[in-house]
Amino acid sequence: MNPIYLALDLPRLDAAIALAQKVKGHIGGLKLGLEFFCAHGHHGVHEVAKVGLPIFLDLKLHDIPNTVAGAMQAIHVLEPAIVTVHASGGRAMMEDAKAAAGEHCKVVAVTVLTSLDDSDLAATGVGGSSHDQVLRLADLAAEAGLDGIVCSGHEVGEVHRRWKNGYFVVPGLRPAEAALGDQKRAVTPRQARDAGASVLVIGRPISRAEDPVAAARAIEGTL
């Protein structure tokens, strides 16, 4: 299975579908985030699903357990392969999210966003390093019965050693020659895969490349 999920971070639905159609032979799935979902809703997801690749709904649900369970039930009809919740929502919320998910849907918990570093966490009252916080929340997600977590490539190796059968989604990936953008803790796709990543989320290095097909093919070739 190709582990690359393309983040379709384009504002226009027609452009997003056109890009997905172009590169679908070199990726394994499509990630639709909060911006996409708020702009295009269920209709947009249904249209993108026609491309024929698994859909990862990166909604980062975070609310009281009953509300998150209701949201999970509301997206059953979209048949997502992966949905995200925030691990910081707590064990009960994660348990209810998993219980409400579709039979073939993996529920993974966001630990620490790859745009945050230690000083950002300290400003929110979280003690210790981002690495320590990821490990704490990974343990909590495992206890809650989730399928896996979202973490940066810097933590995935240790989390994989602690959680052998976990499903690990790694965003913030940048090919060796690419700019970091707003990602403070990025690694290359190959480094993340070697460390135990199940899914590699890649956006701008493909979507904003002069030749997206060549870019996707080049990344695929490093794995």
Results as ranks from 00 to 15, higher is better:
residue 160 H to D: 08
residue 27 I to D: 07
residue 96 D to V: 04
residue 2 N to T: 13
residue 145 G to D: 04
residue 131 H to V: 05
residue 202 I to Q: 11
residue 12 R to V: 10
residue 2 N to I: 12
residue 211 D to V: 05
residue 47 E to D: 13
residue 133 Q to Y: 13
residue 106 K to C: 08
residue 182 D to N: 11
residue 88 S to Y: 14
residue 194 D to H: 10
residue 13 L to S: 02
residue 22 K to H: 11
residue 125 G to D: 05
residue 109 A to L: 09
residue 190 R to V: 09
residue 24 K to G: 05
residue 100 A to G: 06
residue 38 C to G: 10
residue 173 L to V: 03
residue 174 R to I: 08
residue 209 A to L: 07
residue 89 G to K: 04
residue 148 G to R: 11
residue 29 G to V: 02
residue 113 L to N: 01
residue 40 H to A: 02
residue 36 F to P: 01
residue 194 D to C: 03
residue 12 R to I: 10
residue 6 L to Q: 06
residue 50 K to V: 13
residue 17 I to E: 15
residue 79 E to D: 15
residue 69 A to K: 10
residue 8 L to I: 04
residue 92 A to F: 08
residue 9 D to F: 03
residue 107 V to A: 12
residue 183 Q to V: 08
residue 123 A to P: 03
residue 112 V to D: 01
residue 174 R to E: 04
residue 55 I to Y: 11
residue 215 A to T: 01
residue 30 L to D: 04
residue 185 R to P: 03
residue 67 T to Q: 09
residue 138 A to H: 01
residue 146 L to Q: 11
residue 80 P to D: 10
residue 26 H to K: 15
residue 8 L to E: 01
residue 133 Q to S: 13
residue 113 L to E: 02
residue 106 K to I: 00
residue 214 A to I: 07
residue 209 A to Q: 05
residue 147 D to M: 00
residue 149 I to T: 05
residue 124 T to K: 11
residue 28 G to F: 07
residue 207 S to E: 00
residue 121 L to S: 01
residue 43 H to A: 14
residue 127 G to L: 13
residue 5 Y to C: 10
residue 103 E to C: 10
residue 165 N to E: 15
residue 117 D to Y: 02
residue 201 V to F: 05
residue 141 A to D: 01
residue 109 A to S: 14
residue 170 V to M: 13
residue 30 L to Y: 03
residue 28 G to K: 08
residue 129 S to H: 02
residue 103 E to A: 15
residue 156 V to R: 03
residue 189 P to C: 11
residue 94 M to H: 13
residue 197 A to Q: 11
residue 59 L to F: 02
residue 176 A to L: 09
residue 148 G to M: 04
residue 46 H to V: 14
residue 137 L to R: 05
residue 42 H to K: 15
residue 104 H to E: 15
residue 76 H to N: 12
residue 56 F to Y: 14
residue 45 V to W: 06
residue 74 A to V: 08
residue 217 R to I: 06
residue 136 R to S: 05
residue 142 A to V: 09
residue 146 L to Y: 06
residue 28 G to W: 02
residue 110 V to N: 05
residue 61 L to Y: 14
residue 41 G to Q: 02
residue 123 A to W: 02
residue 207 S to I: 03
residue 205 P to C: 06
residue 142 A to K: 15
residue 198 S to N: 15
residue 157 G to I: 00
residue 74 A to P: 04
residue 33 G to I: 03
residue 215 A to M: 06
residue 65 P to C: 04
residue 151 C to H: 03
residue 170 V to S: 11
residue 82 I to H: 09
residue 36 F to C: 01
residue 138 A to F: 01
residue 144 A to T: 10
residue 111 T to N: 02
residue 83 V to R: 05
residue 69 A to E: 13
residue 14 D to T: 08
residue 46 H to F: 14
residue 71 A to G: 07
residue 221 G to P: 11
residue 210 E to R: 14
residue 144 A to C: 09
residue 135 L to R: 07
residue 78 L to V: 02
residue 123 A to G: 12
residue 128 G to C: 00
residue 68 V to N: 13
residue 152 S to W: 00
residue 84 T to L: 10
residue 137 L to F: 08
residue 97 A to Y: 13
residue 144 A to W: 09
residue 55 I to K: 13
